[in-house]
Amino acid sequence: MRNAFTFAKKELSVYFTTPIAYVMFALVTLIGSFFFLSLVGQYQQTSMFYMRFNNPEVMNRLNFMDMVLMPLTVNMGVIFIFVAPFLTMRLLSEERKQKTMELLLSTPVTSAEIVIGKYIACCVIMLACVVLTLVYPLSLQLSASTSAGIDWPTVIAGDVGLFLLGCAFMAVGLFFSALTESQMVAALATFMTLLISWVLGWRAQEAEGVMKDVVQFLSSTQHIVSFAKGNVDAKDLAYFFSVILFGLFLSHRAVEAQRWS
């Protein structure tokens, strides 16, 4: 397992010596801030609206969590669909392209160590992206006149969900990166797969009966909704962990296959 950490350390140092990590953080916060500001704007408008009609009942029900942070977490999940392919595309395909795979194949490391090491590295970057989104509830907390606005356990639950979603995306991306020499192909295949897993959720609204449940369960971004509401559901955990394990298993098979071809 020591080798896996060696790989993780090396990949992380590559993320930070090249602009990848910085560009990723900058873009995630940029788009995140855009969503955040527009959600806060909407919240402000709605509160003004009900304040004018002096409707204390609705006013009491309006809060940051439901109006801003919950939708923001779900939106961040969608943003991850767009950034995930860029984090994972080079992980394994570059080794093949640059012929450094020969080095890995001729040193005493196992395919599992290669896969897990690289996976840890991209999950750490994902974790950093999630931690960055804490800036939004924090800024609300600091600027709110009463501290009642933010329910931190719910925020944390939402971020755990967001992180697990990111990890599931990373596993899909790692698998496609293991399949091809071309980073472009790996990125495109990952992006398309994740995109389909997102838009599948739209279909769920039209479907009926069992079909609706199946489609809803398959859709990736649906699974952070209850996390964002503060409910950690075993069904969602099962979804994320099975995607992660299946992705890692397939990546392992793909790397192992290179030893035998």
Binding site: N3, S13, K99, T100, T107, P108
Partner: peptide
């Protein structure tokens, strides 16, 4: 093993590359 194409990572420094391979070995 020194393969036909030296298996080096352009994004790493010589020292960090050698340390990486040493750890793998």
């Amino acid at each position: 093993y020194l393969p036909e194409n030296p298996p080096v990572y352009p994004d790493m420094t010589v020292a960090s590359y050698l340390r990486f391979v040493a750890a793998l070995k």
